[in-house]
Amino acid sequence: MTALSDSEVRTAHLVASVLLGYPDGRLHEARPLLMKSVAVLPAGEVRARLAAFLVHVAATGRGDLEAHYVATFDLKRRCCPYLTYYTYGDTRKRGAALLRFKHAFSAAGFELTSEELPDHLAVVCELSARGAVGPATRLLREHRAGLELLRRSLEAERSPYAEVVAAVEATLPPAGPRERAAALRLAAEGPPAEQVGLEPFGVTGEHR
């Protein structure tokens, strides 16, 4: 697999960020531009998987897309798009993990709001798309086990969104034995459960 340049990663993450957001009218308006962006990526898994999802968007009515998004990401905990959830669940440790995401956004010069938690996969991809490829990639790699578990869960649900998550994974270096072991452990044990309040860190721009 040929490694993508930083510019190509930014393009791929930009497309993924839009596709992983709530599929309202803006997605359909942006589809022609997204298709052009994907077409300039090198031939390979990233381009093929993003293109496959865009074909799905073109062939599916907006109402069906919205219903599937809600049924998948809002109603199935195993398909949670928040990366720290897989490792920390709803525990106090997750709050500290969210601070790391918040600091990454602040260091890159992006203002956070209360609209979205910064560990949402679409938001992390947006961070990369805006130019902070290195910090965003580090966050994705640190939570690669959760990312892989999300992809596996989407595949088990036969959700087209598995294509987008797989495309994001394909922009990263191959997973090592330690990352694969962590993913298997998460799959077997699931996230820890300890219900606590979390400060709602968000990023400017809605993904829902």
Rank of each mutant, 00 (worst) to 15 (best):
A122Y: 05
L112I: 13
A129Q: 03
V123Q: 04
R130I: 09
L127Y: 01
G109R: 02
D119V: 08
S106V: 13
S128H: 00
A122E: 08
G131D: 05
S128Y: 01
L112N: 11
S106Y: 04
V133C: 07
S114P: 13
E111W: 00
L112P: 12
A122Q: 08
T113V: 14
S114E: 11
P118E: 06
A122N: 07
E126G: 12
V124K: 00
A108G: 03
A104P: 09
P118C: 06
A122H: 08
A129C: 09
A132H: 01
C125P: 00
E111T: 14
S114N: 14
C125I: 01
E115P: 01
L117P: 10
R130V: 11
E126A: 11
L127M: 12
G131R: 11
V123R: 05
D119R: 04
A129P: 03
S106R: 09
F105D: 03
C125T: 01
L127C: 04
H120D: 11
A122M: 10
L112A: 13
S114M: 12
L121E: 02
L117Y: 15
P118N: 09
E111A: 12
V123H: 05
V124A: 00
E115C: 11
G109F: 01
L121D: 03
S106T: 13
A107Y: 06
S106G: 02
S106F: 03
D119K: 10
S128C: 12
E115S: 13
L121F: 05
V133G: 02
E126S: 11
A132Q: 04
A129M: 08
A108D: 05
G109E: 03
T113E: 02
A132P: 10
E111S: 10
G109N: 03
V123P: 04
E115I: 13
F105W: 14
E111H: 04
F110E: 12
E116N: 13
R130Q: 14
T113Y: 01
E126C: 07
D119Y: 04
L112D: 05
T113S: 13
T113H: 07
A129V: 10
D119H: 04
A122C: 11
S114V: 15
F105E: 05
E116A: 06
F110H: 15
E115Y: 07
D119G: 03
F105M: 09
F105H: 14
T113P: 03
S128F: 01
C125N: 01
G131L: 07
F105R: 05
A129K: 03
T113G: 05
P118I: 01
A104G: 08
S114Y: 11
V124T: 06
V124F: 00
C125Q: 00
R130W: 12
A122S: 15
G131F: 05
A104Q: 07
